[in-house]
Design a protein around this nucleic acid. Sequence first.
DNA 1: CCTACCGATCGGTAGG
DNA 2: CCTACCGATCGGTAGG
Lengths: 206, 206
Amino acid sequence: MEKQMTTKEKIIFESLKLFSEKGYEGVSMREIASAVGIKGASIYNHFKGKEEIFNAIFEEMKSRYDGFATSMHIPVEQDDTTTEIYLNIDEEMLLKYTENLLGFLVKEEFPVMFRKLLVGEQHRSPIAAEMLKQYYFDGPILFQKQLFESLQKKGVFKGYDAGIMALHFYSPIYYIICKLDLGASYEEYLQTIKSHVHGFYMLYVK
Amino acid sequence: MEKQMTTKEKIIFESLKLFSEKGYEGVSMREIASAVGIKGASIYNHFKGKEEIFNAIFEEMKSRYDGFATSMHIPVEQDDTTTEIYLNIDEEMLLKYTENLLGFLVKEEFPVMFRKLLVGEQHRSPIAAEMLKQYYFDGPILFQKQLFESLQKKGVFKGYDAGIMALHFYSPIYYIICKLDLGASYEEYLQTIKSHVHGFYMLYVK
DNA sequence: CCTACCGATCGGTAGG
DNA sequence: CCTACCGATCGGTAGG
């Protein structure tokens, strides 16, 4: 946890930490206050209630994700154009893309905690379900599908169903993310990631 | 919900239903009692407390899974032998295996509710995390890895890393299970499953 | 940002 | 399987 945070930022950060460990319902306002270093009633000077903290966490994550996506040249809003950069992709670059993605998603504590919150609340909170779907299911598959389609048009990849290719490429990554959240070590899976990307490239490239 | 259940069975069933929808912490003993049709205090004639209901749900699922695994000729305890049956596998049989697995995991309500409970409680309950890991991560990967190794020895499959093959085969199935839990329809994904199994078979069979 | 307090609900018990 | 009740804790408010 960084220094120099305002009380409001501290509340967001500590709430996310507690929610990700104990679930939204399992955390009391007094517990959040105690983690921040104030009394329970004082939280209400910054937020109207518990749900507003929940929403603020989502807004904070959206903002962080947008920054990351921009730096990775991944479109945030879905349009039909795949960024130029990815069209000259080779195996090394595909691996680099994967490692950067995982670097953000599993090595930075905010995204890790946020994902644990999303996963834990998906069957109670429609907004959590929608965000999980967008960030970890439909979003990556759509981006990669469009990428592979472009690479097929360029003649780099073989002419399989691009949707299935995206599923073959992305789903092992999602599986590994879930395993890391279950306590596996990144180092343990580094070789698996490399082998997966290598295998994918060998099978599909012309 | 079947008729002719004892009160104890009703408590297990209705608790699982409520836990899967609202989380363990989000459900009160009075809520469970009301769903069963009795008063809150009466539950304590069948269970010592809330946690004992939680544990009973796990025992019930274990028993149901053992029955399913036996019928599928999937080893419940991990040993080194792959059942004879699977060694003469072809694409049709591989698809049948996948459809049977999904039929149990996503079409029967008890496994569906139980998985939602596991996923939702994995970061709070070590026993939920362990069971999720065994049922949905390490278990299927180990079984399939051994299967593909056997098929490689028989000369049916090409000589890729069997662990990566298992990851390529299983992780799209897990991805689809999660999407179905998020509200997608089975029919919508039937074609994807077929294409995935077909693609896998084409890529890896000799 | 605090103390003091509200009504509601929690898991669980006593006793029949 | 019930009514009646326990102490503890919940989200939130009043007022300073």
